[in-house]
Simulated scan of single mutants.
Amino acid sequence: MRVDLFDFDLPAENIALRPARPRDSARLLHVDGSKPFGHRHVRDLPQLLRAGDVLVFNDTRVIPAQLDGMRGEARIGATLHKRIDLRRWQAFVKNAKRLRPGDVIQFGANFTAIAEERHDNGSWTLFFEGDEPVEVLLERAGRMPLPPYIAGKRATDEADKHDYQTIFAQEDGAVAAPTAALHFTPELLDALDAAGVSRETLTLHVGAGTFLPMKVDDTTDHTMHAEWGQIDEDTAVRLNAVRQNGGRLIAVGTTVLRLLESAVDENGIIQPFAGDTSIFITPGYTFRAIDGLMTNFHLPRSTLFMLVSALMGLEKMQSVYSEAIANKYRFYSYGDSSLLLP
């Protein structure tokens, strides 16, 4: 499909630079089949779902994966993208033309990395020297990797260490937050429990590739970035039981949806999964694992806007986004949310 079919105009004032406070006070555009749009708030979720439904969350934890360093006199910026092994990460590098294989980058006292290999997409493999775990080094010298549409307008600060982390965050490895889950609070979870809506977690380590612009004119020419995910056997069994008992499986975020659709078989049974997924979902895709999606509002011409268009239909999503823009919903990572029920 032509990428320009997924373009739209978004006023700059609709881009959120800070989250709503409290988190569950964010607005929620309720899109339920052919019913009129509902303008609600995230805290209204218990009234919008049914007893027996399950919300599925991503328990990945964002690491401070943005680094500033020096190679000799040259400034080098690195955003870690994907773990390779205990001491190696693939990273997008700013000022990469100043790097050669074997160069040493100094990111701080006793914190150095060797630039080992440049990849076809411009990223580098960095080998972090020393005995301390890389995660410890990052906590000391790294910054939270805010999306470029926020970082380009303000500096990262102490508030982002909390704001850009969900309450489900357990497993270190993401360099971008699963933002749909940023809206949840303990009080909202209590209300969902009381309404009979259960929850499950899985892990998908979101990579910085999620922010890369599409550089092709047709979706068939796009190579999707890979991310590592895991669904354990017990979780898969419980998720399948929900649907067998008539409940709906609602993915909280596109990361959850992509992992579930990677793990489901042709009969609609979710299988245990551990490994990379580079699934690219565009209109025409047949969904087998999920019955709905809670998600924030995405960038024009992005793979994520293509994904929601596959779920609801392109014309429907164009109408949804027009409604959101006209009603001044806040977009992107710190923005408002939507509940999409085909």
Rank of each mutant, 00 (worst) to 15 (best):
L28E: 01
H30K: 10
V31K: 06
P64N: 13
D24Y: 00
Q66K: 15
V56F: 02
D53S: 07
H30G: 04
K35C: 12
G69C: 02
D24A: 02
R43D: 06
H39G: 01
D32T: 03
V54Q: 02
A26D: 07
G52Y: 01
E73W: 12
R40Y: 04
G33K: 01
V62G: 07
V31N: 06
H30N: 10
F57A: 06
G69K: 11
D44L: 03
F57I: 10
V56I: 14
R27K: 13
I63T: 13
P64Y: 11
L45D: 01
R61A: 10
R50I: 11
D32A: 13
Q47A: 14
L45C: 11
L28T: 10
A65G: 15
F57T: 02
V62Q: 08
R61V: 06
P64M: 09
R61I: 02
A74Q: 15
D24F: 00
S25I: 05
G69P: 08
G52V: 12
E73Y: 10
L28R: 04
R43P: 10
V54A: 09
G69R: 12
G69M: 08
G52A: 09
R43L: 04
L49E: 01
D44Q: 09
S34E: 14
L67I: 12
Q66C: 12
G33V: 09
T60S: 15
V54P: 01
S25P: 00
L28P: 00
S34C: 06
A65T: 13
G33I: 08
M70F: 13
I63E: 03
F57L: 09
R43I: 01
D53G: 03
D32E: 14
L48K: 07
E73Q: 15
N58F: 04
V62M: 07
S25T: 06
T60F: 15
F37T: 00
D24V: 04
H30Q: 11
L48H: 08
D53C: 03
V31H: 08
R50N: 12
Q47W: 06
L28H: 02
V62C: 08
H41Y: 00
V62S: 07
